[in-house]
Amino acid sequence: MSELFEPLLRSYDEKRRSELVAAYLAVEHAAEPVPEVRFPALREPALRRTLEAMLGLSGRTLVRPAPKTWISGYRDDVAAALAADPACVPPVEERAVLALVLIHSVAIPRATGLLAEDSWQSPYPTPLEELRRRSQLPVGELEAALRRLRAAGLVAQVRADGEETGGYVPGPQFHRLTDTARRRLQEELILAAGPDSPLAAAIRARRRNRVHDPQARDPQARDPQAHDPHDRQAHDTAHAQGETR
């Protein structure tokens, strides 16, 4: 069953081997980033390199969302290749709903200083009513989109509790964004939420320069269509916003 990993694991004794396997399954399947104190293969740099190679076999990489905690995500080059494959892009309804959740739960609280600069986790739920009104989707389609987004871990439901209204927040998958993916998503949100802002103009100018600059090193920057599957939904944010006006 594990011929795939055998060349990487062969040289390790049983103990090290099982530590690598445990860390691999933990970063690939946990809901939240896992603390390295619990997994020797995350703690020790030599083992962590082997773990990185195991993840790399499926186009994955280690992501460290906070000091001493780890999770896995798609490598940037793999994410770009997947986003260019129409079969791997979720339907427009899901992208529109997710974009609305990111605007209400992250972009707006961040703009008012309620949320830290680089966090994609949010305690501010987007009410269902807001999604219903802004997405302009029939109720059945909206519910199906939310069901699939929840199952994929892209949104999480917050239940109403006393005075607090319930709704949807970004899901645990947002822990899995690489630095590059987070930066792109941030830019896409700025373009969507404030297309006329000076910041948006600066982003557009920078992207234009990279497109025209043959020295540009970042392949994602050269092709604005090819980006991480986690942030491709934000690409449609502008579109979703346009529809609501």
């Binding site: 594990s2 694991l9 690598l20 396997v21 399954l25 399947h29 499926s58």
Partner: peptide, 9 residues
């Protein structure tokens, strides 16, 4: 998927 050493999530 194939998981290493027959382990599962």
């Amino acid at each position: 998927p194939q998981w290493p050493d027959g382990a599962t999530p």
